[in-house]
Amino acid sequence: MGEYYVNSGGNDVIFIGDCEVYENFSPVTLWQEYGIPSYIRGSAQQMIWQSYYLLEETLQYETPKVVVFNVLSMKYDTPESTGSPTRREAYNRMTLDTMRWSPTKWKAIAASLTEEEREWEGLLTYLFPILRYHERWSQLTAEDFAYWLRRDTVSHNGYLMQTGVKPMTDSYASAPLADYRFGENSWHYLDKMRLLCEEKGVQLVLIKAPTLYPIWWWEWDAQIAQYAEENGLLYLNMIESIEDIGIDWNTDTYDAGLHLNVWGAEKAARWLGEVLREECNLPDRREDAELSATWSKKVALYEQEKQSRGGS
């Protein structure tokens, strides 16, 4: 997430959302296949209110043509509904600690904490993370120093490369829900996201990434489809297009269908790039010499990592 600040600017597409965006779409493929420069501002279990403020922050750095938002996080209505306090804090920090200081960050923090966590000194630990991690030094391992000394970025324009393969063997099932309606707060932030995009002249595209779990209930899908229709938005439920995309659950996932590996992410990007080019009229920017030079370096790094980690 924090790597965005050195890569900001010049992107036609910005992805916003949870792990279903930062592991399922390869920006390098979008560039290579369609000349679409893009960046993924994704983080683990990113909540919709965090997505909104990340979008608000991103639009202070650049104005893309398209913002792609993965709608899975609509299922969480409030910070209280996102799990145990420990788990929630861990995920919150993955998003919030990486944001630069700004009023937007402050608003993102305030929106992400439960009433109980919004205690003054708790808030301060988000602004001054050392107050939270002051004893981290006692748990340092060699791996910490490996990242500390590393000069290259960990992600490829926000994409976290996975090269493992773990086929999906069983289909997933979940107990039916008592209530499938998305909460008011989720709709509130989706509305805010839509209005902000309208204000900035950015096209908002809603997607549901092509993964099998967590289950994307048809009742949820129907609500998003209706919202998209009512507001003139493009909504792509990529689960329905898994065959078109060409995902093979024996080879294209590293965790049995929860997320895609690099081969799956390239297929998903290829499919999405085609749709975005046609539906959003995105130009092919490969003729732009300066942009091409920048991206050729990114492509080289991407290919190098892919090869070194056993990809081809």
Binding site: E89, G122, T125, I130, L131, R132, H134, E135, W137
Partner: peptide
């Protein structure tokens, strides 16, 4: 105090 102190979450 900052690094060795027992305080916070």
């Amino acid at each position: 105090v900052l690094l060795l102190g027992k305080y916070g979450v």
